[in-house]
């Protein structure tokens, strides 16, 4: 798939995830929009996994630690054929497996997440098992930046470096916001690159909305043999919808009818520009 095709996919993913959030009356709009390009690149270019190979022990793994951005994951998994997109009509409905955080009841989801600070430890375990078995699969996990205040992440960072898990890549959705406001105001995270490096990781920063740049970085792991790789993806919370961008109040806000129409029109305009 070309860069342009992926760019168009990203716009379509944004349209869909907004549609399902609107329909469900719930969802983590801001974070979905900040990480959807990362998911796009991972699932359409990087990960060696498909609905047919999901039970294969040698498949690549994607573990979404920031489980609240589940609508982005659902939309991408549906597009990859893990389940019919019509399933997403049931998000957050009584009796549906499509709840507001990922669970293994949904085909394509590796691990139940939602409480923060859990995905990295699990990913370390999967990567470690790969090393023990001499397997060649790679493990990717997506962390929120607000999530990094959970101390459990730093326990796992230590272990990943200690066991030289160069089959493990942690992508950090660095949108610089969390529910309360700026990460730097809530509880300072910077200097993040130095922190990760000091914990023994090989770190690169990338524009988290730049499809070619993301593809290049995520496809060139490990950055250093014997070290886990960290990708700080600089993103914009609410990316793609002008009035949602960089506004923490959209963390889990659902657009009203007027906002929804405006958002879809903006995305249609992006789509027209991209395809012209």
């Amino acid at each position: 798939m070309t860069d342009l095709e992926l760019k168009i996919k990203s716009i379509r993913y944004r349209k869909k995830l907004l549609r399902y959030i609107k329909q469900a009356g719930a969802g983590h709009t801001g974070g979905d929009l900040s990480c959807v390009d990362i998911l796009n690149v991972l699932y359409n270019r990087i990960l060696n996994v498909s609905p047919a190979t999901f039970d294969d022990p040698g498949r690549d793994r994607y573990i979404q630690s920031k489980g609240h951005s589940v609508e982005a994951l659902y939309v991408v998994l549906a597009d990859r054929g893990f389940f019919p997109e019509s399933d997403l009509e049931t998000i957050c409905r009584y009796g549906s497996h499509y709840v507001g955080h990922p669970t293994r009841k949904v085909h394509g989801v590796e691990q139940n997440t939602g409480a923060l600070g859990h995905g990295l430890a699990f990913s370390v375990g999967v990567a470690l098992a790969g090393k023990m078995d001499g397997a060649t699969y790679r493990v990717y996990t997506l962390l929120g930046d607000g999530e990094l205040a959970e101390g459990s992440n730093w326990e796992s960072m230590m272990a990943a470096a200690h066991y030289q898990l160069d089959n493990l890549t942690a992508v950090i959705d660095r949108n610089a916001l969390q529910i309360t406001g700026a990460t730097e105001t809530v509880c300072r995270l910077e200097p993040l690159e130095q922190k990760l490096a000091a914990f023994g990781w090989s770190v690169h920063t990338v524009d988290g909305h730049d499809i070619p740049a993301l593809s290049e970085r995520l496809g060139s792991v490990p950055f250093q043999a014997g070290k886990p790789s960290a990708v700080i993806a600089q993103t914009v919370k609410g990316k793609g919808i002008s009035f949602m961008e960089n506004d923490a109040s959209w963390h889990h806000r659902v657009p009203n009818d007027e906002q929804y129409e405006r958002a879809q029109r903006e995305l249609d305009r992006h789509l027209a520009e991209a395809t012209s």
Binding site: L120, A121, F122
Partner: peptide
């Protein structure tokens, strides 16, 4: 190391891989 949260999370990951 002395990191029970990681202990349990890592255990889950190892189990998922067989």
């Amino acid at each position: 190391g002395i990191a029970e949260q990681n202990l349990v999370g890592v255990a889950a990951g190892l189990a998922s891989a067989g």
